[in-house]
């Protein structure tokens, strides 16, 4: 991983219009093809950081560089905590949206969207409206929509937080499978130690008020990871290590 990073953040700070300092002094390199977790308690600015990387929010100070070239609209996929689907559109139309907004013809967009839906195990649900789908299925549609443009960078803001544990585990595995196949870069925000260890190659532990990076930890286990990883000793050791780092980050904030 000695390649130049996909995105490089230097001295990023963000102050809200209300005067609150959301994050400060963020230095972070996001490597090509890695899975990076931003882990921290609520209010540590991890979502704000993600939005700044996506270009949805401006940093007050610092710079965000893309050494391999500024991203176009298709280069970034974003998954919100809620599925955030258009309720009046079918699953297929929801997934085709980014392509159509980018100017692709309806037929081609529909074909690609259908293929992407099949990739997230939703073949046969093309014409279903979001209300007819379960929470996990809606999330799959949301992930399919984020990946349909074949982005270089997939950003996810606590994507599985609202799901039950069984569904969450399944989606974790499905996400890893998709990543194995395409090797896009993933940055996801979570407040779950277990989820961060299970998915990520690297974990940035964040401390709150103001949000900053407290520690960066590597998860040494290789991919592919599956259910056996969840029960391995290495997994447990990493969870302990990350929990301690998170505890220290919180204690530092409280002091």
């Amino acid at each position: 991983m000695s390649l130049e990073p996909l995105v490089s953040l230097r001295g990023i700070a963000k102050r809200y219009a209300t005067g609150t300092l959301a994050v400060r002094g963020i230095d972070l390199d996001i490597a090509q093809g890695e899975v990076l977790a931003l882990l921290g308690p609520s209010g540590c600015g991890k979502s704000t950081l993600l939005r700044m990387v996506a270009g949805l929010s401006e940093a007050t100070a610092g710079r965000i560089d893309w050494p391999s070239g500024q991203p176009s609209a298709r280069d970034i996929g974003f998954v919100f905590q809620e599925p955030t689907l258009m309720p009046w559109a079918t699953a297929l139309a929801n997934v085709a949206l980014p392509l159509e907004l980018g100017g692709m013809g309806r037929r081609e967009a529909a074909e690609r969207a259908a293929a992407m839906l099949a990739r997230v195990d939703l073949k046969g649900f093309e014409n279903a409206y979001p209300r007819a789908l379960s929470g996990g299925m809606r999330m799959r549609v949301s992930i399919a929509r984020a990946l349909v443009t074949r982005p270089r960078l997939l950003l996810m803001d606590e994507p599985f937080a609202a799901l039950d544990e069984i569904t969450r585990f399944r989606l974790n595995n499905d996400l890893l499978e998709l990543w194995e196949a395409e090797r896009f870069t993933v940055v996801f925000v979570t407040h779950s130690v277990f989820e961060s260890v299970y998915l990520a190659r690297r974990i940035a532990v964040m401390a709150p008020r103001p949000g900053r990076i407290h520690a960066e930890l590597a998860v040494e286990a290789g991919y592919p990871r599956g259910e056996e990883f969840r029960t391995s000793a290495g997994y447990a050791a990493h969870c302990r290590e990350v929990s301690q780092a998170l505890g220290a980050a919180m204690a530092g904030a409280a002091a």
């Binding site: 949805l56 970034i76 974003f78 919100f80 809620e82 955030t84 949206l97 907004l101 980018g102 443009t149």
Partner: peptide, 22 residues
Amino acid sequence: DHNLLDLFRLYGASRWQVLWRL
């Protein structure tokens, strides 16, 4: 929905597309 608005922004949707499709 604010998140949907963000999504449209992310994909560079025009004012017209936001109005018509969202």
